[in-house]
């Protein structure tokens, strides 16, 4: 290609617009699951109450803290690179990645406990939705981690600066979205029966 698209002066605007449109898509993806949750919580209130007590609230709460912290670290990273602080960015990305790993590890502990107890997606509607929702969210966390690794590699090569930080910014938006989804999932699944 002869055209240098990066040179187009609208690039940052287009990237931001693109990620917001993508997040709108993501919102509707999870929106359908939340709709299913709402319907069955009304029609099967008793079941949902009984089953949600089986989940480990402490681990859920811990995971909420972990993910919130990771949102903070990536936000700090973005603020840093806007001022050109590459080293801070790298530290923040690494921290975010580590926290995401921690989140998944805790999730793994929860799931293996569930399976050990004989609670599977087919057990009942509540667990069907629980595994579906946390599973889809988990996939988003993994996708986010892949992005962090990619950003770290690029950052290592010094790709980002105060002038150019678009990939970091849009990944940050994505990561906040993943965080927000969890902020809804946690109370709906663990706290409100």
């Amino acid at each position: 290609m002869t055209t240098n698209h990066d040179a187009h002066n609208g690039a940052p605007v287009s990237a931001r617009l693109g990620i917001w449109a993508f997040l709108a898509t993501e919102l509707l993806l999870f929106g359908a699951l939340f709709t299913a949750y709402a319907q069955f919580r009304i029609t099967h209130a008793e079941l949902f109450h009984q089953e949600h007590l089986k989940l480990n609230r402490m681990l859920g709460f811990l995971n909420t803290l972990v993910l919130l912290t990771s949102s903070l670290t990536i936000a700090v990273g973005i603020a840093a690179i806007r001022r050109g602080l590459q080293k801070v960015l790298k530290i923040c990305l690494a921290l975010t990645l580590a926290l995401a790993c921690g989140f998944l590890f805790i999730k793994y502990l929860e799931w293996s406990h569930d399976f050990h107890q004989g609670w599977f997606p087919r057990t009942n509607l509540f667990f069907g939705l629980y595994f579906m929702m946390t599973g889809l969210h988990g996939l988003h966390v993994i996708a986010g981690m892949a992005l962090m690794v990619w950003l770290l590699i690029k950052a290592q090569r010094g790709a980002f600066s105060a002038e150019y930080s678009t990939p970091v910014e849009i990944t940050g938006l994505y990561w906040h979205f993943v965080d927000i989804v969890w902020i809804y999932l946690f109370p709906l699944l663990y706290l409100i029966g």
């Binding site: 993806l29 299913a36 069955f40 509607l125 069907g128 579906m132």
Partner: peptide
């Protein structure tokens, strides 16, 4: 499109894991 995307995922999960969201026999709809 994301809504049909998740619907297809649920349909697949229904067949593979038996989550029962669409299956009246399991209380689904």
């Amino acid at each position: 499109t994301p809504v049909i995307g998740i619907t297809f995922l649920l349909l697949a999960a229904e067949r593979v894991f038996g989550i029962g969201i669409f299956d009246p026999a399991k209380g689904g709809d």
